[in-house]
Amino acid sequence: MAGIFSSLRRLYLVIYNWTVFLGWLQVLYLAVKTLKESGPESVYAAVEKPLILAQSAAIIEILHSLIGMVRSPVTATLPQVGSRLYVTWGILYSFPEVRSHFLVGSLVMSWSITEIIRYSFFGFKEAFGFAPKWLLWLRYSTFLVMYPVGISSEVGLIYKALPYLRESGKYSIRMPNKWNFSFDYYYNALLVLGFYVPGSPHLYGYMLGQRKKALARAKTD
């Protein structure tokens, strides 16, 4: 029974990782094509559907680590995936005003490159039990550049959306109401920006540690 279960788990993870990989590959292809043909202002329109699909698939990843199907702790997955989903759904999807900003170009490029490497790395590991050395190196090195680019694009886009958040009052709940509750999406965005301040260096430090461990292990193998 245990054997069947673990094979099923592996098969499922192989399919999952390679499917999402294909999604991000399509995002990258469309993004590069659009950047070459027109410019960063049309990137969002070109990648919208696959981007939203591929990014939302990461919700399943949180479930994976919650039920212990993969080893990465949910405390590491949740903030990363959460901030990406926030930018995808809560900013870009909800506020078309920022979609034509040039930062969308760098955002989509850095996300898709990182994810293509990451999903193929896990796809290899689940399918064959190992990943090629060059892929391991890429997995634990590209973030050195991609994270700062990605994070500054995220922060920049949230910042650019702030006036629209405030003006529209979208997703905000105002008093008076029966349950005496209010929620201000604009202040919520400021809070999110505040979390990036300690969050980003923490995440970067965590990845540096992972890099050191993974590359040292690869050397001894």
């Binding site: 008093m175 008076p176 109401n177 029966k178 005496n180 509750f181 209010s182």
Partner: peptide, 9 residues
């Protein structure tokens, strides 16, 4: 903040 709010119901 909520219980003493001017728009409390």
């Amino acid at each position: 903040y909520y219980v003493n709010h001017p728009l409390y119901t």
